[in-house]
Every structure is written in structure tokens, then in C-alpha cells.
Design a binder for these strands. Structure first.
Length: 469
RNA sequence: GUGGUUGUAGCUCAGUUGGUUAGAGCGCCUGAUUGUGGUUCAGGAGGUCGUCGGUUCGAACCCGAUCUUCCACCCCA
């Protein structure tokens, strides 16, 4: 075999895996549709400028850029030569970082989709005249990130997004939380937590500490509390330039655990001096209160001020879902963005959305053995091919079976019986029909049940009746 | 991007301090069985030991580079 392969972090999906993946996609799609969301798709590739600068510094680094094609690329290479005449002396060490970024900028004009939210914002701006707002859209497509692969992390993976744009009603947050619960419960997960936070609360915390500009550093650091412990978090905060007095002001947050009402009452006091912080708290409270009317199935809901996901464009609620049964990063995320379309030229368009990470959900379900057994079945009825005459006799029957909604196939050549039976066996086909000379004469076909091995002579009408019943 | 790890038949893996012709199980193909799969028996095919380079009389084994796998960090679904 030749040394062939596929790019790092990307995968083939064989039929048995696809059956399971589709089970997940179908469950999610069904729930989205049930809640009135309409599907759209956007291209795999966007203009590079559409994506850059939307996901923070780290995000920009992980975007797959697409090179220019043909003469345009040649032009850029010639341009580089002018910029650095002494190309022979170039080494990795003395390479000017500014040149590196302008190479990316000039050599690539496109980029692969990094998530579904930013392309959606672009879509909304571009199609604003055709859209009736508030717009509920869902989108199930792959995204690409140039990250190093590891457990639950791929370079190509599917996101399943549902967003509502054009209203700032908190009812949407409530509905989206409900969808998290509905879908994951339906998929058989028994123990998972929906974590809820609010960007305004985080802003408030940074304000109370007196370092509003350090909001990202502060939240990223306290996000690691459970993982690395309080001492290490304090160390990191100090490294990021916070004074001891400021760190001491953060300390009360380390104790924030447990009952939502308790957490909120502590935060109310803590955020007393911050108007934004109070606003955020009111939002959190309202969401919780509205949710009381709609009980959740399997999900646990938790206020988590250390939740710091997607800070770059989220302005209100922030969501994240983790499984408590399997050690895996977050399996879902989401949040509210008050002004994502603003950067594309459409103001005052608040949106909120969620995203299911289908590949991580798959890994979790696989580890927990949650996939139903029956998913892998393909063909129901198999016709053995005995030759030209028999084939002509069977063809209308094959058609009849399919019309009756029974998936059926006829072996494409008159191969040895043993080979055909083996094929049916390996494809896990439960029923086989044999039509040879004697069957054609009598009209009584040989019908074999593969699982038990028993077989009987039946008319085709009777066979269909059995399969449908 | 940082650190570690892995690579031998289609798959899962053995392989002695570096020494003849690199093995096993499963799978695959053929036959026992010209109208019967899944069981059994007999036989067979299949490997540039990830790739390139180096050390050596001699390399699957030692060294270097590179690609790939998996894992952790960063970050994230």
C-alpha cells in the first residue's frame, strides 16, 4: 500500500460511525425545528477579513488561512522579495515577526470557517432585507481550527448552532437552556451541568477590583481554580500584573460554590459598587426565575462566575455544558452578543445562540455506551442473483419491496452462492430471498431468516407482509 | 505555539546485547461444499519494519531530522 493518509486532526467516517453521527445530528435537528428554527448553510471558506480579529489573539492563530491562487500568489511572493532583499541570509531566528504576519495577510485572501456564529452575523447583515426578525436560524456544518489534536479535539469538527437574532429578550436564553437539556437528555446523558455566567458580572468583578482592563486575564485565571488550585491562580494573577491588594479583593470569589441563590446573594453584595455587575446579576436572576416554570429533565444548572468562554464577542449570558460522567472539555457552548453584526455595518441587532459540539458529544456517548444497538442496520432484504433469467424475474420484486418502504438490494452479478451469502451476512442483512429455476416455476420463493438460519417457501406477497408486520 | 509519546501484515500486537529467510492472533483469498452465510478442517496470499539520512562488516533494534498517533499545557466544541 502506498503511503497515503489524510491531514493531521482530520478523520474519515465509516458507515457504522456515520449511523451514530446521524443519530446525534437528527436528534439535534429535530429539537431545533421543534423550537421554530430554520436551517441555513454558509460556505466553508470566508473572506479572511471576515474572520480575523473576531476570536482574540489565540483564535486568530488557529484560523486556517487559504492561500491565494495562481498569479496573485506569484505577485505576493515577488513583493516579499522586495521587502527583504537578502533572502539568502534569512533564518528562523532573525525572521521579522512583522513580515510573518504580513506574509499571512498577503498570501492568503480566504480562511476556513472557525465557528458558525461569525459567518452567521455576516449572513444576517448581507441578507437583512430578506429576513424577518427576530430570526431563529440553525446551522449544522463543520468548522476548522489549526489546533494540536488531543482528546476530544479535532482540526475538523461539527458544530450545531441555534441562534435568535433581533431581540434582547431573556426568554431566548431560557429557551436555549431548555434545548441543551432536551437534546442531551434525549441522547441518554444522565448527568451533565449547564454552566451559566454573564459577561456583565465579569465586567463588574473587574470593576470592583479596580482593573476593568484586566477582565480577560482575571477571568481566565479564576477559570482554572478547580484545575490548579487557589495558590496557582493567585500566582498567575500576580504574573499578569495584579497587586496583592487587588488579588485579595478577588479572593472572596474562590468560595463561590453551590446553591444558585446563595451565590447570587454573595455576588449582590460583592458587586454593590458596580452598575454593570448589578445589571448582569439581574439578568441571571431573571433567567433562573423564568426557568422555574419549565423544569429541566437531566441537566443541572449552575451559576459559575469562573466561566470565561468566548469572551471576545459575548456581552451578556455565557453558557457552557460539561458532562459529569466523562472527562472531556465542554461539549456545548454559547452566549449573547449584543453587537456582533455591528462590525459588519448593522447596528442594534442583539443575538444569542448555542452550539452543540457533535464530535465531543459522540466521544462522550461512545464512552458511556449510549448509542442504540439498532442504528447500524442497512439493507433489510437481499436477493441472491442466480443469472440473467432469474435477475429479470426478480427486478420487479425488488422494485415492489422498495415501493413498500423496505430497503432491498439485488446482488449485481451471478457470483457463487457462497460469496453472495457471505456478503449478506457481513452486511448484517436480516432477510434473504432466493429465486432460482424451481422458484420461478412455482412462484414460491425461498425466504431465509439469517439470524436463525431457518428458511421457508413463501409467495412474494407473503414475504412483504412479514417484513412490514 | 510549548513539553512528552507512538509508528512492525488489512486490524491488534510479539520481535533476544545489533547477527541467517521478521513472527502470532484476528481478518482476507481458495478448497472441503456446482443452491446456502455465521461454526469446523486443509491450504494460500499479504511487510521498503512511517520516511529520509547517519553510525556499523551487518540496523526493525543505536543516533539525527521529518511526518504521523496519542496525551498534557495554552486555548477551546
Amino acid at each position: 500500500m502506498k503511503n497515503i493518509g489524510i491531514p493531521k486532526g482530520m478523520r474519515d467516517f465509516s458507515p457504522s460511525v456515520m449511523a451514530r453521527r446521524n443519530y446525534i445530528f437528527n436528534t439535534i435537528r429535530k429539537s431545533f425545528e421543534l423550537h421554530g428554527f430554520e436551517q441555513i448553510e454558509t460556505p466553508a471558506m470566508e473572506n479572511r477579513e471576515t474572520l480575523t480579529g473576531k476570536y482574540g489573539e489565540e483564535g486568530d492563530r488557529l484560523i486556517f488561512n487559504v492561500m491565494q491562487r495562481g498569479d496573485k500568489l506569484i505577485d505576493e511572493i515577488l513583493w516579499l522579495k522586495e521587502l527583504d532583499t537578502d533572502t539568502d541570509k534569512l533564518t528562523k531566528e532573525n525572521f521579522n515577526p512583522a513580515v510573518k504576519s504580513s506574509i499571512i495577510e498577503n498570501f492568503s485572501d480566504g480562511a476556513l470557517r472557525y465557528d458558525l456564529t461569525v459567518p452567521f452575523a455576516r449572513y444576517v447583515v448581507q441578507h437583512q432585507n430578506e429576513i424577518t426578525f427576530p430570526f431563529r436560524r440553525f446551522q449544522i456544518q463543520p468548522v476548522w481550527r489549526a489546533d494540536r489534536p488531543q482528546k476530544g479535539r479535532y482540526r475538523e469538527f461539527y458544530q450545531c448552532d441555534a441562534d435568535i437574532i433581533g431581540t434582547d429578550s431573556l426568554l431566548n436564553e431560557v429557551e436555549l437552556i431548555k434545548i441543551f437539556d432536551e437534546v442531551l437528555s434525549e441522547l441518554g446523558m444522565q448527568d451533565f451541568t449547564i454552566k451559566l455566567n454573564n459577561r456583565k458580572v465579569l465586567s463588574g468583578i473587574a470593576e470592583v477590583i479596580g482593573r476593568p482592563e484586566k477582565i480577560v486575564d482575571i477571568t481566565v485565571a479564576i477559570d482554572k481554580l478547580e484545575k490548579i488550585g487557589q495558590a496557582k491562580v493567585e500566582e498567575e494573577l500576580s504574573e499578569k500584573g495584579l497587586t496583592e491588594i487587588e488579588i485579595n479583593k478577588i479572593k472572596p470569589l474562590f468560595q463561590l460554590k453551590g446553591d444558585s441563590k446563595l451565590v447570587i446573594s454573595i455576588l449582590k453584595e460583592y458587586l454593590e459598587g458596580s452598575k454593570v455587575g448589578q445589571e448582569g446579576l439581574v439578568e441571571v436572576e431573571e433567567i433562573l426565575q423564568t426557568l422555574q416554570a419549565i423544569p429541566l429533565q437531566k441537566a443541572k444548572l449552575e451559576i459559575d462566575v469562573t466561566l470565561a468562554r468566548g469572551l471576545d464577542y459575548y456581552t451578556g449570558a455565557i453558557f457552557e455544558v460539561v458532562s459529569n460522567e466523562v472527562k472531556m472539555g465542554s461539549i456545548c457552548g454559547g452566549g449573547r452578543y449584543a453587537d456582533l453584526t455591528g462590525i459588519f455595518g448593522l447596528k442594534d441587532m442583539s443575538g444569542v445562540g448555542i452550539s452543540f459540539g457533535a464530535d465531543r458529544i459522540y466521544d462522550v456517548m461512545e464512552e458511556l455506551g449510549l448509542f442504540p444497538e439498532s442504528l447500524s442496520q442497512s439493507t433489510q432484504l437481499f436477493f441472491v442473483n442466480f443469472g440473467a433469467k432469474e435477475q429479470a424475474y426478480v427486478l420487479p420484486l425488488l422494485q415492489q419491496a422498495r415501493e413498500a418502504g423496505i430497503s432491498a438490494e439485488l446482488y449485481p452479478e451471478a457470483a457463487k452462492m457462497k460469496k453472495q451469502m457471505k456478503y449478506a451476512n457481513q452486511k448484517n442483512i436480516p432477510y434473504v430471498v432466493m429465486v432460482g429455476e424451481s422458484e420461478m416455476q412455482s412462484g414460491e420463493l425461498t425466504f431465509k431468516k439469517m439470524q436463525s438460519g431457518e428458511q421457508e417457501k413463501l409467495s412474494f406477497a407473503e414475504i412483504l407482509k412479514q417484513l412490514k408486520g
